Computed example of a mutant assay.
Amino acid sequence: MTLTTSISPCLWFDDQLEQAAEFYTKIFPRSSIGHLARYGDAGPGQPGTVMAGEFTIDGMTFRGINGGPMYAEFTEAISFSIACSDQTEVDYYWDSLVDGGEESMCGWLKDRFGLSWQIVPNRLYELLGDPDPARANAAQGAMLQMRKIVVADLEAAADAVD
């Protein structure tokens, strides 16, 4: 049996799908807005407004619907994690996504649409996996105090136990 299944996240918005797709596709490389289905005269929505659509963020396809306010509140139970190669990438994604949103702790933020993101430098995992438990614990302690993860501060905390 050959399966041709693909899995895509589907995000429920009140009425901001088009704005969200534009926001995300400007931030990430290899991104684009696909088909947006609009309400016609017969639909329950305002004719011409977006009902549902598809967009790609860094090569990953997302679907979205403007389903009204009943489920339009995102929670931290679902988040998207961005693995960053260095502090420059952390700063770029953090600053871009938190614009109009809010910071949280340990590399988490909510964007202007309320969607949660984790902006994580690869170096964090390296330090948390340090074979010296004292260094790993020091890096973890530093991370737990941060909003945006700062690699130099993690390294300084780990190096301070040597």
Results as ranks from 00 to 15, higher is better:
3 L>F: 09
3 L>M: 08
5 T>V: 11
5 T>E: 10
7 I>G: 00
7 I>E: 01
7 I>D: 00
9 P>G: 08
15 D>W: 04
15 D>E: 13
15 D>L: 02
16 Q>A: 14
16 Q>D: 12
17 L>D: 11
19 Q>M: 07
19 Q>H: 07
20 A>M: 07
20 A>L: 11
21 A>D: 04
21 A>W: 03
22 E>C: 04
23 F>N: 10
24 Y>M: 04
25 T>M: 06
26 K>Q: 07
27 I>T: 06
30 R>F: 02
30 R>L: 09
31 S>D: 04
31 S>L: 06
32 S>L: 07
32 S>Y: 02
32 S>T: 08
33 I>Y: 05
35 H>G: 06
37 A>R: 09
38 R>P: 13
39 Y>V: 08
40 G>T: 11
41 D>G: 02
41 D>E: 12
43 G>F: 12
44 P>Q: 14
44 P>W: 12
44 P>C: 10
45 G>K: 08
46 Q>G: 03
49 T>I: 01
51 M>C: 13
54 E>Y: 00
57 I>L: 14
59 G>Y: 08
60 M>K: 14
60 M>H: 13
62 F>N: 12
64 G>P: 04
65 I>P: 15
66 N>S: 06
67 G>P: 08
67 G>H: 02
68 G>W: 13
68 G>N: 11
68 G>D: 12
70 M>I: 09
71 Y>W: 05
72 A>I: 09
74 F>Y: 11
75 T>W: 10
78 I>G: 05
78 I>F: 09
78 I>Y: 14
81 S>V: 14
82 I>A: 11
83 A>E: 15
84 C>F: 13
84 C>P: 15
86 D>T: 06
88 T>R: 05
93 Y>G: 11
96 S>L: 08
96 S>C: 13
99 D>Q: 09
99 D>P: 04
100 G>Q: 14
101 G>N: 03
101 G>S: 05
101 G>E: 10
101 G>C: 01
102 E>H: 14
103 E>H: 01
106 C>I: 01
109 L>H: 07
110 K>M: 12
112 R>K: 15
112 R>I: 05
113 F>Q: 08
114 G>Y: 00
114 G>D: 04
118 Q>C: 00
119 I>R: 12
119 I>K: 08
120 V>Y: 03
121 P>E: 10
124 L>A: 02
126 E>F: 02
126 E>T: 07
129 G>C: 15
132 D>C: 08
132 D>Y: 01
133 P>G: 07
133 P>D: 10
134 A>E: 15
134 A>K: 15
138 A>Y: 00
138 A>I: 01
140 Q>N: 06
144 L>T: 02
147 R>F: 06
148 K>V: 05
152 A>V: 04
154 L>A: 07
155 E>V: 00
158 A>K: 02
158 A>Y: 00
158 A>D: 08
159 D>M: 02
160 A>W: 04
160 A>D: 10
162 D>F: 03
